[in-house]
Design a protein around this nucleic acid. Structure first.
Lengths: 211, 211
DNA sequence: AATAAACTCAGGGAAAACCCTGATTTACAA
DNA sequence: TTGTAAATCAGGGTTTTCCCTGAGTTTATT
C-alpha cells in the first residue's frame, strides 16, 4: 500500500483527490492539509511515500516547500498537482526535487498511475505538459534549453536588477563602482542571449535563476 | 430535494463537489459535466434547480453561458463556482443573472448553505467576496491582491516590452508614434506600481498579465 | 447629448541603460 | 609557472528609458 498525503488550499480539491483514490487497492490517502505549515509535522512523523503538492499555497510557495523537504529528507516523493500550466513552473519544481507534475484537470486513472510510477522511482509528467516541453525545446532550442553558467557576482547583480534597482543603486549596495555593475550587466545580456533588461528579467524568472 | 448540476472542466473538482453533497438530505447532484456544450441538453430536459458553474471553461465562457440560460428564461438558478477572485468577474456574472458566487476554496457547509439560500430566492456571495465588494465601494483596495485594469493597448505594449522590443520597435509594430508608446509605458509603470522596465516584466509574468 | 475613459501625439530634459575598447588584480588549476 | 576565469574599474559615446506638462481625437457608457 502506497501512502499519500496531499496539500491544497481548496477543500473541494482535497475531497476530489480523496474520492478518486478511495477505492484504490494500492494507494491510500493518509492525510490532507490546507497549508504547508499544517502538513510539515505530519510529514516528518508519518513519512508518507508520496506527497501531492499544490504550488500556489497561502503560507508558502510549493516549490520552496519541495526544496526544503528534499534538503531534509530525501525519502518522500513529491508530485506537483496544480493549475499552473507553464513550463517554467514545471522545470522549476522538477529542478527542486519533484518527481511528477499533474494538472488539476487530471482524472482518476492518471492520478493513480502517476502515483504508482513515481513510487517506483520513475518520473511522471502529464501528457500535455510533456508535449509542451518537447515543443518548446524544438522551437527555441538554443536559448531555452541552454542553461548558462552565471558567476556568483552575476547572480547577485541579476537578483538586484529583478528587484528594480538601478545600476547606481546596485553599485552602492555591493560597494563596487557603477562601471563594474555595467560590466556584469552586459555579461548577463550576452550569456542569457537577450537584448535588454526586459529579457534579462523574463529569462531569469522563467529559468528560475532568481533562487 | 433540491436538484443540482455542475459544470467544471476539472474532474477533481467535480468529484469534490459530489462528495461534499453526497450525504446531504436536502441537496442532490443529478449530473455533472466538463463543458457547457455537454451540459446544455441535460439542463433543458432535466431542469435542475441549481447550476454550479465555473467561469473558465474550455468551450465557452461561464458568464456567456449564464447569460444565454437567463435569456432563454429558464428557471434555473446559477451559482458561480470559480477561482477567479476578482470583483469584476463577480459583478459581471451577477449582472448576467447569477444568484451566487463561491470560490473553489469553499467548504462543504458553505456550499450547501449557498445552494439552499439561492434556491429560496436569496443571493449568496462568499464572505471574502462580499467584503471586497464593500471595501471597493468605500475606495479601499488591498495592494497585495490588487490587479489594476489594463487597457487593450496597454496590454499590447506590455507584451511587446516583455518580448524585448524597444519603444521604437513597438511604435513601428503598432503603427503609432514613439511618444504614444512612452505614454503607455509610463501608465503601465504607474498602474503596476513599479519603478522601471524590470519591475514591469516581473509583475506581468508573476500576475499572468501576459495573456 | 454629455461625460468619462482610452488613445493619440508633442516638446524638452534628466537619468539610466547599452556598447566598445582596454586594463589591473586575484585566485585557482593545469 | 603559466594560463584562464572572475572581479574590478575607466573613458567615452550612443541609445533608450523615464518624467513632466499639455492637448486633440476617438470610443464607450449613460
Amino acid at each position: 500500500m502506497i501512502t499519500v498525503m496531499a496539500i491544497d488550499d481548496h477543500p473541494m480539491v482535497l475531497r476530489g483527490i480523496e474520492t478518486m483514490l478511495k477505492n484504490s487497492h494500492d494507494v491510500k490517502i493518509i492525510a490532507s492539509f490546507k497549508s504547508c505549515h499544517e502538513a510539515y509535522q505530519s510529514i516528518k512523523s508519518d513519512k508518507p511515500d508520496i506527497l501531492l503538492l499544490d504550488i500556489n499555497l497561502p503560507d508558502c510557495n510549493g516549490i520552496e516547500f519541495c526544496k526544503i523537504l528534499k534538503k531534509e529528507s530525501s525519502s518522500i516523493k513529491v508530485i506537483a498537482l496544480t493549475n499552473l500550466n507553464e513550463t517554467s513552473f514545471v522545470k522549476n519544481i522538477i529542478r527542486n526535487g519533484a518527481k511528477g507534475y499533474l494538472l488539476k484537470n487530471t482524472c482518476k486513472n492518471e492520478l493513480e498511475l502517476a502515483i504508482k510510477k513515481v513510487y517506483k522511482g520513475e518520473q511522471y509528467l502529464q501528457k500535455s505538459i510533456q508535449q509542451r516541453l518537447l515543443d518548446e525545446s524544438f522551437g527555441i532550442t538554443s536559448r531555452k534549453t541552454f542553461i548558462p553558467k552565471l558567476t556568483r557576482r552575476e547572480k547577485e547583480v541579476l537578483k538586484l536588477i529583478i528587484d528594480e534597482l538601478t545600476t547606481q543603486e546596485i553599485a552602492d549596495k555591493l560597494f563596487i563602482s557603477t562601471k563594474t555593475v555595467e560590466t556584469h550587466r552586459s555579461h548577463l545580456i550576452q550569456k542569457l542571449d537577450v537584448r535588454n533588461t526586459a529579457g534579462l528579467v523574463r529569462i531569469a524568472i522563467e529559468k528560475g535563476l532568481t533562487n
